[in-house]
Design a protein around this nucleic acid. Structure first.
Lengths: 204, 204
DNA sequence: GTCTATACACAGATAGAC
DNA sequence: GTCTATCTGTGTATAGAC
């Protein structure tokens, strides 16, 4: 409604001595991953940020709000992959989703890591789990469509296949560490090769 | 010091009204999985067991001892699979290990689930992680050997291949629920098929 | 926006009666 | 072997000064 378009959503970003919310969130998520969300005290968060607890509470109303915003970041990224799943055949769309999921996972590594550790211990966590399940259901439908068109083997239940696929993809957060370059794209290629072609030597 | 040999390590097992350690552990692990280890209070454990906290402390000296015994159960099972990995070729031994890992995972589902959620937050957790890493190293050596004999594709780093394989296998704890019958063996066959042959329809 | 001080609940663990 | 009562530390969150 303003005549002058804002360059981005951020109001002004006037905090010089302290943190803005994004930077605080980034560090908090890192601590959550290192120590576990439940095991992380607000005191230890504040210490890591070089702030007092009160200053932290000035930016976020609770420890759980930090979690909620972080989970939304991860879920938004994954849902975006489904949103622009172009491709003619179901197989192509499935490959696009798998490839994109790996890229999001690498790009938002910490946020997705946190998401994958959520167990439904609170309302915020349960809502995140439900969004994950919705994502899963849409991928499962894609696998089923690929089976119907004959491009994915039909002797495996599509729901089991999806879970094994994403079990493989999601496990990347356990060991992948960025190393510069286009590591994410390389990794996505390897994952697609193993997921669709298997580990056996096809020349054997 | 006693002339009469005991039938096993258990002193006598004279507790009728209460629990023996194994049964208490089983229930405690279930609660740890539902609520998360850190988020589970000793009070809530006691409540679930229908005991007071003090009674629980009579059987286990700390909450962490419960965790330690549970992790040992899971790790012992996995290490056992490596111990009796027969088979002539590396490929056969690798298949044996994958198959056996799935069976252990299904058989000791709760214990392995707990193990896979450990993040190194204490000495006990770090020791468990180290045993997991040792297991991984031995599997990675097996993958490398299979690559050398030409039965596993060589265009993928053996360490990455191992991690993707066990990412798939380990993710089973997220969704598999026993349903009677020989579900574990069926599941192991599916996992082997996907891991080695891939999801693509080979007739396409 | 940051601080110190503090409220109040609950954590893990223990004492000691029965 | 189980209980009630309690110790001591730490948890999340807030009050109010600067």
């Amino acid at each position: 409604m303003d005549a002058v378009p804002a360059p981005d959503q951020t109001p002004v970003r006037r905090g010089r001595p302290g943190y803005d919310r994004d930077r605080m969130l980034e560090i908090a998520v890192q601590v959550f991953i290192e120590q576990g969300y439940d095991a992380t005290s607000v005191a230890s968060l504040a210490e890591r940020l070089g702030l007092s607890k009160s200053a932290l509470y000035h930016h976020f109303s609770s420890k759980e709000e930090l979690l909620e915003v972080a989970l939304d970041e991860a879920l938004g990224g994954l849902e975006g992959v489904l949103a622009d799943a172009g491709g003619r055949s179901a197989r192509e769309r499935l490959e696009h989703v798998l490839h994109g999921a790996v890229l999001v996972l690498v790009d938002k590594l910490a946020y997705v890591t946190l998401l994958l550790r959520v167990r439904g211990n609170s309302e915020v966590e349960r809502a995140a789990l439900e969004r994950r399940r919705a994502f899963d259901r849409r991928v499962t439908a894609l696998v089923r469509a690929a089976q119907d068109e004959g491009t994915v083997r039909s002797d495996i239940d599509p729901s089991v296949a999806t879970r094994l696929l994403f079990g493989m993809v999601n496990s990347i957060v356990e060991w992948y560490r960025p190393s510069g370059g286009e590591g994410g794209a390389d990794l996505a290629r390897v994952v697609l090769a193993v997921a669709l072609g298997g580990l056996a030597d096809e020349t054997g």
